[in-house]
Amino acid sequence: MTLRMWTGALLIAGCADPALAEGPADVVLRGGTVVGVGRTDLVLRGGKITERGPGAGPGLPAVDVTGQFLVPAFIDSHVHFAYLEGAAGMADGGVVAAVDLAAPLAAIGGPTAPVRVLWSGPMITAPGGYPLNSWGAAGYGLPVTTESEAAAAVDTLKGRGAGVIKLAVTAPPTVSDPAMAAAAAAAHAGGLQVAAHALGDGDSARAAAAGADVLAHTPVETLSDATVEAWRGKAVVSTLAAFGGSPQAVENLRRLRASGVTVLYGTDFGNTRTAGIDAAEIALLVAAGLDGRAILEAGTSAPAAWWGWTDLGALETGKSASLLVLPRDPLLDPGALAAPSQVWLEGARRR
């Protein structure tokens, strides 16, 4: 058997093994445990889950996953693919979709298949502000000064294909509060959510007041009770490992989650270098008080609902055939999520 063919134990039902990663396969995954459902069989056809149940898919080639656990493929809600190429590695590691939260305009819509990407393009910032004054000098920021410029920047980004808007909320030079509010209003009027780079308490409070929907990182400085409350009903992308997993950031995430903020798994890939599901990020989510079910939700159903990927985040009939096969139950051992034995994306086997 060549390296391009499936590895592992196969139960063949009348046809040869499909090639690895050459496109969607019509197969049945037999004998595994779909987490949250129980032991059952999954039929994959044309990149979709077409049937789920014991004995489903008679006559199809069968992959024996007895004793293993099946969960949806992950969504990483903070990456930078223009800064560091890694979509293929992400796919091989079990990531089916990602939110790219800062890239030059020309990078929007670039090749990332099979990983789906929601792009922000350059983050809206002040002239000479973050990230133009550091790592993002080559087009990763779009400078504005006035409210009208901020609204126009949103229109430009949406016109170029951005599906989310990102604001840089930092120490001076920074976008004014009225300009941030104008950008958020324009984004919401255009059906786009607003993510904010805000690492301190004051900046996080400003971002919430301006109308931002998502903290692009867990803040690393102590948050006041008022700031935590201001984010109730909104979302935060974890990115704990990207900033060293400090005890204060971990505690901030715990408090934000306890207040009703939705936690979205994210790694800040580009700043970090692990392509795939990051074991260090999973461990830090555990430290922040998330159990296995909450971590699974943060990487699957929660971001699928938040970002509008309606066919991701669950292993149900009609959903995308994008899933992980795990050797251990991730509800009991969340670290298993970072070491899948098989990865299927849109019906094609990557691993």
Rank of each mutant, 00 (worst) to 15 (best):
R39G: 13
A107P: 03
V214L: 15
G335V: 02
D64P: 04
G94N: 12
D64R: 06
T156D: 14
Q193A: 11
G335R: 04
W231P: 04
G159Q: 14
L315F: 02
L10A: 07
G89Y: 00
D177V: 07
R232I: 01
L10M: 12
T33I: 08
D203K: 00
L167M: 04
G245R: 06
A25K: 01
R160G: 05
N133T: 07
T274K: 08
E346T: 02
V115K: 08
R273L: 15
A283H: 10
P54R: 07
D268V: 02
I49W: 00
A19I: 01
G191I: 01
A287N: 07
A230D: 09
V115E: 11
R255Q: 07
R30I: 04
A56D: 13
R39A: 15
A151E: 15
M5S: 06
P303I: 02
A209V: 10
G109V: 05
A304F: 02
A162V: 01
Y140N: 04
L324P: 00
A216F: 03
D177I: 09
G191V: 07
T317W: 05
V34M: 11
A216N: 08
A102F: 01
W231R: 02
T125R: 13
W119L: 05
W231V: 06
G245T: 09
G57L: 04
T310S: 15
L256H: 04
V28N: 07
Y130D: 12
G139M: 12
L10V: 12
G110P: 02
T145K: 08
L3H: 14
L70H: 13
A279P: 12
G313R: 06
T112S: 15
A103I: 01
V34W: 12
T2Y: 09
A126T: 00
V96Q: 14
A179I: 12
A162W: 00
N271V: 13
T33V: 15
V65D: 14
A210F: 12
P54F: 14
A62T: 00
H80Q: 10
A279S: 15
P131G: 07
L284K: 05
T146K: 06
A230Q: 01
A226Q: 12
W307K: 03
A279V: 12
H217D: 11
R293E: 15
G93A: 01
W306G: 01
F69S: 01
P247E: 08
E85C: 01
V263E: 08
